[in-house]
Design a protein around this nucleic acid. Structure first.
Lengths: 192, 192
DNA sequence: CGGTTGCGCAACGGTTCCGTAGCGAAATAT
DNA sequence: ATATTTCGCTACGGAACCGTTGCGCAACCG
């Protein structure tokens, strides 16, 4: 009987949380701040979520980039398209900060660790498909260990994203990285 | 005139700070905790350092791995040797946590950002030399953009370190990563 | 229509960390 | 030897978060 949790309130809190995260980062997204900014009472937040972490995690779920699987005809083209999608959905500097903050929280909090894994799995499917298509085309060594190759492919982009102050941008550097990555996976010429 | 800052006290605080960092992570390394654990009074800490961040940064400086430049005769061998050195100086799980924590602090604090860059530069020299020797041997495409290649090479290891719960270990996976990386840099066979 | 329950408001207690102050005692440059 | 400054101790004031409580009001289920 009686009254259900207000969907409107939930929407407002999650919206505010996301705004805060984008504007000031994950660490600025506190219960007090979400309450202040959303106009929702702190008490209400605790009626919807067991604790502050749950709120933040729920807000994070909405940042999942669900990339679709590109098909440009070449591995390099597909990879580039995936990066383009990624960049298009989130400001590079923002995604960089999110990535680092999630990684950091995941160190101590299993809940965040799982949330982090979930958010990354969204990209695995498309990447795997792109890779397998490249194998079918003969563009990639068919002997390749696919999970390993996937992990390998993520590396250079991660380095680009983490170590460059300006994070990932679509530029020559990126193209060269992609070029190198593709070379690595190419079928080995039979030595005579 | 009068009394110099006690070197003994400084040593004790820095030592305690490092212990805490290794045992419980960068975030556990607070001024209060360092004082408690080192037996040095908090007031004394503030006589030696302007603030807590300075203390932590000073403590971090001591974790710099100064790798020397291996020379095994092949790029793959040299890279492997470098990773081995890296793993030998610091527990993989510890270095993973340090890396992530530094990255996280660097997001907001320029001082930590600089400290982070400094700590990484220690590896650049050796890596550059290893790479240039490989070029001289004809093992790597002489047209290669060296800084780009260096960044590229760091990628897969970063992915390994960050995304694997067990961080970097010396195993098959690592060897395969190295193998792939070397292929990427190999001279392109002249197409007829 | 009535009871139940979410909502907003305001305030509180608890924790953790920061950086500072006051004090007596010990160390050290001159 | 003496003046000066560090050192350790204890305590404080302030800030940021957390999660909770009590209250009056309004919304919703039945």
């Amino acid at each position: 009987m009686s009254r259900p949790l207000s969907e409107a309130a939930r929407t407002k809190m999650l919206g505010a949380a996301q705004e805060i995260i984008v504007a000031d980062g994950l660490d600025a997204c506190t219960v007090d701040e979400v309450a202040r900014r959303s106009g929702v009472a702190k008490t209400t937040i605790y009626r919807h979520f067991k604790n502050g972490d749950e709120l933040v995690i729920a807000a994070m779920e909405c940042f999942k980039t669900d990339v679709d699987t590109p098909d440009t005809g070449s591995l390099a083209g597909d990879l580039r398209a995936m990066v383009e999608q990624f960049v298009a959905t989130l400001e590079p500097a923002v995604s960089r900060r999110l990535f680092v903050s999630m990684l950091h929280r995941a160190l101590d909090h299993p809940d965040f660790e799982q949330a982090f894994r979930r958010s990354r799995e969204a990209e695995y499917g498309p990447l795997r498909r792109v890779l397998q298509r490249a194998i079918a085309r003969g563009e990639v060594d068919p002997e390749i260990d696919v999970p390993l190759a996937m992990q390998f492919l993520q590396g250079p982009f991660m380095a680009l994203q983490l170590l460059r102050p300006d994070a990932i941008t679509i530029d020559d550097r990126l193209d060269q990285m992609i070029e190198l990555s593709c070379r690595a996976l190419a079928p080995q010429p039979v030595p005579l």
